[in-house]
Write a protein that binds this DNA or RNA. Structure first.
Lengths: 207, 207
DNA sequence: TAATAAATAGAACAGTGTTCAAAATCATTT
DNA sequence: AAATGATTTTGAACACTGTTCTATTTATTA
């Protein structure tokens, strides 16, 4: 009986359709303008139908965030295996992370600022022990450990460094997104300066 | 005729009352739960009355933000005139800035993340030339200039440094606010680490 | 084809910001 | 003090929002 499977496939397709439409709205009108009714009208179904495929609006958001989040982590991983020099790795990771985030400003904002508990459990990185539970921090720590100066540094210190790198980079990105009208050359200068700052901070480090 | 003056005073009082109540709601329930109707009910007037004293909800927010913003700038100024050593100044300014922000998390979030154009014109700091138009950046630049190593550094470079310091500190604060449940010792470690990072970045700087 | 299960729609509830015309209050002048 | 005019306040309404519930339609199974 392939009918059940077809049904399951149809449900998945419908869910995908909803997510796609939601993403379209976010990209064209911004996340604030996303509404269940707007999704329904664009999909030409009644609003209540949405609730057959998703528990509530938050669950839709959650799925979208998950998608974007995986994209970001995937990027980090690909950079991690690409280069040799650990310092260069951190440079490149930070740089491409920033560029990717700027390419999907609305999604990045949502992922990082939406404090829904579910999403937060993926994106929180500042707690004690994050290096063992968050891929992004783990990858950063791994890179830091490969730097000579950190050979004899305790793990907690490395974790803190990674957390600061992450949180500060986050800050620069969010402000570049929020403060609209910054031209590209200025953006590039800021990014360059920030990466230099990180490098200096790393080099200088003394246990 | 002191009646007109009394009237003006009464209007001011009413406006103040609305703002106070709004702040109370924000502090107790969070900014998301603030609504015109809730203000009205707490003040025991009809919702439509609010619109006699404020153009719309955004204007109320704007006033609240302005208030908090002034508090922050005031703090920066007081630290600026307090200490001697410029490096110490930056340390202290950053530190007390972070502590103040953490004491008013909801307000800080609103000021910095609410992208209403009016508020943005006070809080945007990343554009080219911000050091002449934004007090926070200006103060930071002034401190940087007093550091020996920066004596021969061009203004644009100093501005970028100030902007990065600002944006990264912002990032750390926002994440400490958003990621609830981080205990105080961890918070202090992060803050300490961040300030150290800034210091290292500043020292290391070579034109 | 009849019974059963799933998908879809429509109406409704409670909430939001906002507007507008009417009512109530107050101030001033006659 | 009464009437006029300005100001303050309200109540109802509009257009939205997320969400739930009960029908109704559609598809699957026996």
């Amino acid at each position: 009986m392939g009918i059940k499977e077809r049904k399951a496939r149809e449900i998945d397709q419908r869910r995908e359709l909803i997510l796609t439409v939601a993403e379209e709205i976010i990209n064209s009108e911004g996340i604030d303008k996303l509404s269940v009714r707007k999704i329904a009208s664009k999909i030409e179904y009644s609003p209540s139908l949405i609730y057959h495929y998703f528990k509530d609006k938050d669950e839709i958001l959650k799925h979208l965030m998950e998608k974007s989040y995986k994209k970001i982590v995937g990027l980090l991983k690909s950079v991690q295996t690409s280069t040799e020099d650990p310092k260069d790795k951190i440079r490149k990771m930070t740089h491409s992370y920033i560029l990717l985030a700027l390419q999907m400003p609305e999604q990045y904002k949502s992922i990082m600022l939406n404090s829904s508990a579910d999403i937060l459990s993926h994106t929180s990185v500042l707690f004690d022990g994050a290096s063992t539970k968050r891929q992004a921090v783990a990858i950063l720590c791994q890179c830091l450990k490969q730097i000579d100066k950190y050979k004899n540094t305790d793990d907690k210190h490395i974790e803190l460094t990674a957390q600061i790198i992450w949180a500060t980079t986050f800050g620069l990105i969010i402000r570049m997104i929020i403060e609209n009208g910054i031209d590209d050359t200025q953006k590039n200068l800021l990014i360059q300066h920030h990466i230099q700052f990180i490098e200096d901070g790393i080099i200088q480090k003394k246990t």
